[in-house]
Each structure stands twice: as C-alpha cells, then as structure tokens.
Design a protein around this nucleic acid. Structure first.
Length: 557
RNA sequence: GCGCUUGUAGCUCAGUGGAUAGAGCGAAAGGUUGCGGACCUUUAGGUCGGGGGUUCGAAUCCCUUCAAGCGCGCCA
C-alpha cells in the first residue's frame, strides 16, 4: 500500500539521520501519515518533525529539512517532498500512483478493504436481545443495525465473529409473567368471556392478535386448565410466537444471528448456581438482610447488587453474570455488547461481575446507542396506527424498505440520538442519501452496459495504460477509493459503523462529480479504456461498502 | 444528589491532537440540450455552550460551569 511505503521511507530517513548523527534519536518514533484536507499540502503529510523537535532540541522545520535530505530513492513514487507550515513534511506523488490503486482494487475485488489484521482472534457481539414479549421496536432495530454492521467490519479485519441474541426467557421474569397474563386475558376475551385485563398488562394490539390466532388454532382447550397453569402455558406460547416474529422481522431487516442464547438454559444447566458459587469462593458474594449480594463496589460500582432475592430467586444480574462468564468460557477473546440508552448504568456492574469472577473486564466493551425518534414531514410519529404503540421494526421495513432502514439507522454516531425522517427515506431524489448512493451504483452499471452495446468491454487494469487519467475529479475519486481499507480499519477498531454511511456518500458524490466532468464513452480509445477501468473500480468499491452496510447495490433503479 | 450521553453555520449533522473547522438542506445571485434526472459557480452565514488548563499545536485530551436527554429496584 502506498501509505505504508511512504511511512517506510520516512522511517528509513529517520534511521539514516540518526546514524549520521544529524538527529540524536535513541529509538524509532511512531510515524503518523495523514491525508491533508487541502490539496495544496500534497497527497500525504507527516507531523513527525514537530513531534521530534522538542526531543532533539531543534526547530521543527530544521528537523524536517534534515529528514527530507535523508529520504531514500523511492522507486518513482514521490514527485517531491517539501517542508511546510510549522514543520509538516508534505509529499506529492507522481500521477502513476493512481494506477497502483486501480490495479489493487481489481485484483482484490470484493475483498478490497479487508485486511487480516486480527486473524485468529475471536469476538462475540451480543445485540438486540429484546425481551420476547413484543415485536422488535425501531429503537432496538438501531442496535440491530449497529451490531450487524460492526460484526461485518470486525470480520473484514480478520476477527472470527459470533452474532448472538440473548433471549430473556427466564421463568421468574416479571415482564414475561405480565405478558403471559395479558395474553391469557385477551384469550378469554376472544372467547367472549368478561375477563379483566391486568393492570400492568401489555396493551398492544399484537397481544390480541396472538390470542385470536390461538383461539383459531386451539379453540377453548385451555379453559379447563387452572388459572396458574393457563398463565404458564400462555407465557410459553406467547414467547414462542414473539421469538418467531422477532426472527422474521430481523431477517427482513437483513440481520441473522449465529446463536439465540436462552437465559432459561443458564438456570437449567446450573451455570447460574456455579457462577454464584465461584463468587462466594472468591469472596465477592455476601449475605445481608436475607439476600445474597455481589460486592461490585470492590470494582468501582456505586453500590453492591443483589444476586439472590430474599425469596430465594436469583435476580437478572445473577443470570447475566453467568451469561458473561459463559461467553468467556466458550473461548471468545473479546466481548462486545450493544445496548440501548437505558442500560448505561449497567456497564459498571457488569464489568464488576466479570472482574469478580476473575475475567478481564477490559475484554468486554459496551456500546450504548441513543434513542431513535421517527418523523414524517417534520412531525413526530409517536404512535403506530396499527399497533397502538411504538412502531415495530416489521412495519418500518415494510414502509421504507430494508436498505433505507439500515442506512438511516447508521447515519449518526451511536452516541447521539437519531431522528429518522420516514418521508425522506422513501423519497426518490438526491436528497435521500440512500437513493443518492444507490443511484451512483446504478449509473455506473448503466455506463458499462452502454459500453457493451458499443462492443466495448471493461479492460483489465493490469493490461491498460492508465496514464490518461489525471483530471482533478479522477484523482479525487481514486484518492477516496485508496482510503477505503483504512476507513474500514478505523471503523472496525473504534466500533463506529456509522462512518461507513459517510464514506459511501462521499464516494458517491465524487463519482457524480467525475461523471459530470469526464466523459467515458466516445473519447479517444486510450481515454475511454482508462476511464472504464476507473468506473469499474468505482463499482467495486461502492458495492463493497454497500455490502458492508447490508444495503443492496442495484444495477438498475 | 450521583452517573452516562449530547451541545459545532438558520436547520440536520460530519470532523483519527494538526495547517484557512466541513457537507447536505435552507437563503441571495447566476449557470446548466451529450454516457441515466437527482448537477455547477459565486455570496452570505461560526466566540466549535461558557471559563480555565495540558501541548509546538485543542472542536478533539484534563478540570470546572451552564443547558438538554436518559439512568440510578431484592424489575429484566
């Protein structure tokens, strides 16, 4: 890669200067190379002289000048290197480097952007994990998009990734019991009985729908059961139905999990008991007021947390602790949890629990995403006409499609709240970012189709003279494509999948600018051929980034 | 009260400790007959919430303060 080659040149210059006594350096400093915003500052730039100035007691410009003197022969890569500003060294590349980029994109194809930086490392990404007592909401869907695309990114940099959904199906969960009671009441009502609806019940229309389905399928056969039995049965039936709906909605959203991990199984396999025994043995669990407590304050938490209630039932923290232990025990080296905005207070206690069990809490990263609000035509959409509550993911995908749903939910950093404009998401115009990006891809395909109609195939980059490329718009486009692998690396390592949507928009904009300025077909053969190579490379990179986002790259629109 | 997140152009937001803080929309003026319409030029618009500090250099890191959202159960 070009950037790596320049870094090597600078490192060689540093060694040379140190050996010759020009610069009194003890060990090799880390060289940062960046792409300056302003093209007057060259193609690449380094601040190394300013970093070293204090250490070697010279002015930054002086250090820069000495380093430039020591730059080794570069094999025709660098046009010139010059000192600028406070002591930057700016590198201007010979136009030939454009060809290097295009040849690399061609040879790597759909793997362009991938890099084996973390091969052999495994990571478990847990996300969505909504309670199985209702459909996935748009809020949780944001976690779905973040978790899924982050997983794609981690795979691209070499990780072995497991996408996991934690199913909160514990039998003693109050949420699930409320759900079961609500369903049971709707069932009785559907059979014409005057059953009271529980006070803390789930009023959503979907509960009534499920009850009706059960009546249609099983009739009144549950009437003979005792009330307690019936609630138990309906909790199970409802849970099964909700998991199926969640699974289907997520699938339509392009999210498929490798594993659905049952909380109940943690209790049944006595992993919860084992975790508690370990905590006791390690001295981080104690009894007080008839309950058992996790001494999480020993690891920086605000207060200690209950593990087992006075009535003998374990709390969710108990199962969650066992769950995280099990993740490590399954051999994952890193854990990532993608959690909704209400859960930020749980980071400290979860890490504390992990540490108390003897695992490294730094191996666990938690991404908290903020709330999603839906707007339509500038108006806040609070209610769904159909369900009488928060809009389910299934409805969103139905309304704006998988592509727009995913792209829009990834347009902001997870840290800030997100306003989703439903009207914009369905708009067929350049103001709609998804449309704008997909349109660029369709346009590329159209050019290649037109070329084929004229009997022109896209020539291979390797066999084509690319020296005809050199227009400002061509250079800007190639530069952006050259940045893609690093963009992937940064997005993956900083856990910021939203960066990809910005990159996709930038790339599309640069392609549209190229299209405006440079005609592909009907030019001199040398020009047309070189530009066809460039267009094909643009298609590859655009398709790669859209694939990473889980968004379709259409050939026609 | 404590904790987390946010605060950047009229609006919505980008911005890996670097050079003159950017984009889209909106506003003003003009341009635009070719591969697929979703384009171009110019102008206006900023104390990066305020105040300290670290650094050669801060929107970015630290402290403090103000404002907004959220969270502080033997619920999950």
């Amino acid at each position: 890669m070009i950037k790596d080659r320049i870094v090597e040149l600078i490192e060689a210059a540093l060694r040379g200067a140190a050996e010759a006594g020009d610069l009194p350096l003890s060990d090799a400093p880390h060289v940062e190379l960046e792409t300056p915003r302003n093209k007057a500052f060259g193609d690449y730039s380094t601040n190394i002289a300013m970093v070293l100035a204090g250490q070697v007691k010279m002015s930054p410009r002086e250090v820069a000048a000495k380093l430039i003197e020591r730059l080794p022969a570069d094999g025709g890569l660098i046009e010139k290197a010059e000192v600028a500003g406070a002591g930057f060294i700016n590198f201007f590349l010979k136009p030939d480097w454009l060809g290097d980029v295009l040849r690399r994109i061609e040879s790597e194809g759909e793997k362009y952007g991938h890099a084996p930086l973390h091969t052999g490392e495994s990571v478990l990404v847990e996300f969505v994990s909504a309670n199985p007592n209702g459909p996935i909401t748009v809020g949780s869907a944001r976690g779905g998009a973040i978790g899924d695309v982050l997983s794609n990114l981690l795979e691209a940099v070499g990780y072995d990734v497991c996408r996991e959904y934690y199913v909160n199906d514990a039998v003693n969960s109050l949420q699930m019991q409320h759900f079961g009671k609500s369903l049971e009441a709707r069932y009785l009502q559907a059979l014409g009985q005057d059953a009271p609806f529980p006070e803390d019940g789930y009023k959503g229309e979907y509960v009534t729908q499920i009850a009706k389905q059960i009546v249609e399928r099983d009739g009144d056969k549950y009437l003979s059961l005792s009330k307690t039995e019936r609630v138990r049965v309906f909790t199970d039936l409802g849970e099964r139905e909700m998991l199926a709906v969640q699974n289907a909605d997520l699938k339509a959203f392009g999210v498929v999990f490798d594993n659905w991990y049952s909380e109940r199984s943690l209790h049944e396999s006595s992993k919860v008991r084992n975790a508690i025994d370990t905590l006791k043995a390690r001295g981080y669990a104690y009894e007080d007021k008839g309950a058992l407590w996790l001494k999480s304050t020993a690891f920086g938490d605000d207060k200690d947390r209950a593990l087992i209630r006075r009535n003998g039932q374990p709390t969710y923290i108990a199962s969650d602790t066992a769950y995280h232990a099990d993740k490590f025990d399954r051999g994952f080296q890193r854990l990532i949890n993608v959690w909704g905005p209400q859960h930020h207070g749980y980071i400290a206690r979860t890490k504390a629990a992990v540490a108390a069990l003897g695992y490294d809490p730094d191996k666990l990263d938690v991404i908290i995403y903020q709330t999603v609000r839906l707007f339509s035509g500038g108006e806040l959409v609070m209610m769904s006409k159909r369900a009488g509550e928060l809009i389910p993911l299934g409805e969103l995908v139905e309304e704006v499609g998988k592509d727009a749903s995913r792209f829009f939910l990834l347009m902001r950093t997870a840290d800030s709240s997100l306003d989703f404009d439903l009207e914009l998401a369905t708009q067929q115009s350049s103001e709609n970012p998804v449309f704008y990006v997909q349109y660029a891809h369709a346009r590329i395909c159209s050019i290649i189709r037109s070329a084929a109609d004229e009997g022109l195939a896209v020539p291979s980059a390797e066999a084509t003279d690319l020296s005809a490329l050199g227009h400002e718009s061509e250079i800007a486009l190639v530069k952006k494509m050259a940045e893609y692998p690093e963009e992937i690396r940064i997005a993956a390592e900083s856990h910021q999948p939203h960066r990809l949507t910005a990159y996709a928009r930038d790339l599309a904009a640069l392609f549209h600018a190229f299209y405006r300025d440079c005609r592909v077909l009907g030019e001199e053969p040398a020009v047309t051929n070189a530009r066809l190579v460039l267009v094909e490379a643009s298609r590859t990179v655009l398709r790669n980034v859209l694939t990473m986002l889980g968004v379709n790259a259409p050939e026609r629109m």
